[in-house]
């Protein structure tokens, strides 16, 4: 694709010239020198100013919490017993000797892989479906994304009811079709998949909307030009839609990966990590150590390990996206 050369960085513009050509430029030049200089300084650094509000919020919300976590993760910190002393890396050592933590990492990775892959595939398919101009689309789309709008609490409660072995809607359907009821949430082999299904139901609409927005912002003239050149529907999809959509698809993968990695509320509300430890996830482990047993230092260490895990997974990916973006 043709790309224009890099947009001129504002600092290379001759400031006086830019100012004079502006409406009110004359008045600006009449202003006291200090005010004018401030205006120029502002314009020249505009890229930094634009980044400032968001950057400030990011730093404000993370620097202290992360530092705090790193600090207490090096200590034995029991909140209720008021114990606090330095232990060095012992929390981390203990963490990697704990079979449950390692199992939690494995479970979380399985959940992430299953949920992310199915959600992105399904969501992309649905977005293509909803991208076709059909009558009634404006009514069906909000209905299709409705699952995303329910509070997670309610979603979990509903699905626990639907999954119920004796009275649940799903098993009653199975029975009326003559099958044997399925122990959805109480069998270690399928409990995780059952939770993935709920996540799928709730968050596929997210991918759908994300990709649909991307599809809708592809300029029409590209398709018009291709059609004039006699391209078939599939060719247009392969050579126009897919390349222009690749950023949105990758972003969907990235965001779902990050969000599913934190999965907490669904597991907490539906299985509590069981049966056995079949659905134990890292977030649940941290929650239990920190808020049930009050081992805050240990929980801090676990959460730092978790952050590094996700970052390790996503940074490589995000870097590729970033490079592509800068082309």
């Amino acid at each position: 694709m043709l790309r224009s050369p890099r947009f001129w960085p504002s600092r290379k513009v001759s400031p006086e010239g830019a100012l004079a050509s502006r409406p009110l430029g004359f008045f600006i030049q009449m202003m006291p020198r200090s005010t004018r200089l401030f205006g120029l300084w502002f314009e020249r650094r505009i890229h930094l100013w634009l980044l400032l509000p968001a950057g400030f919020l990011f730093l404000f919300l993370t620097v202290f919490p992360l530092a705090y976590n790193a600090y207490i993760s090096l200590h034995h910190f029991h909140f209720v017993r008021r114990v606090f002393y330095f232990t060095g890396g012992r929390n981390y050592l203990r963490l990697f000797q704990d079979g449950l933590f390692l199992a939690a990492i494995g479970n979380t990775l399985r959940f992430v892989a299953l949920a992310t892959a199915t959600e992105v595939l399904l969501g992309t398919g649905l977005a293509l479906l909803f991208n076709v101009r059909l009558r009634g689309r404006r009514i069906l789309l909000p209905l299709a994304v409705l699952p995303m709008m329910l509070p997670t609490m309610v979603v979990c409660a509903v699905w626990v009811m639907l999954y119920d072995y004796e009275f649940g809607f799903l098993n009653q359907m199975v029975r009326s079709l003559g099958g044997t009821p399925v122990p959805w949430l109480s069998h270690p082999g399928i409990a995780m998949e059952a939770i993935v299904l709920v996540d799928l139901w709730q968050w596929t609409p997210f991918v759908l909307l994300l990709i649909l927005a991307g599809l809708q912002s592809i300029p029409d003239y590209l398709y018009e030009a291709a059609q004039l050149d006699g391209a078939s529907g599939f060719q247009m999809f392969r050579h126009i839609t897919l390349p222009l959509l690749s950023f949105q698809i990758k972003l969907a993968v990235l965001l779902r990966l990050i969000d599913t990695f934190r999965v907490f509320d669904k597991v907490y509300a539906m299985t509590g990590g069981g049966p056995g430890y079949a659905t134990e996830t890292i977030s649940l482990y941290i929650y239990r150590e920190g808020f049930r047993y009050f081992h805050l230092g240990y929980a801090g260490a676990a959460s730092l390990v978790m952050v590094f895990l996700v970052l390790g997974l996503s940074v490589l990916y995000a870097r590729r996206m970033w490079k592509e973006l800068r082309l």
Partner: peptide, 16 residues
């Protein structure tokens, strides 16, 4: 900046 944005979102809320 973008990497940090990811960091912000990856930290589990119960930690923050």
């Amino acid at each position: 900046f973008l990497l940090w944005a990811l960091v912000v979102r990856t930290i589990p809320p119960i930690v923050l």
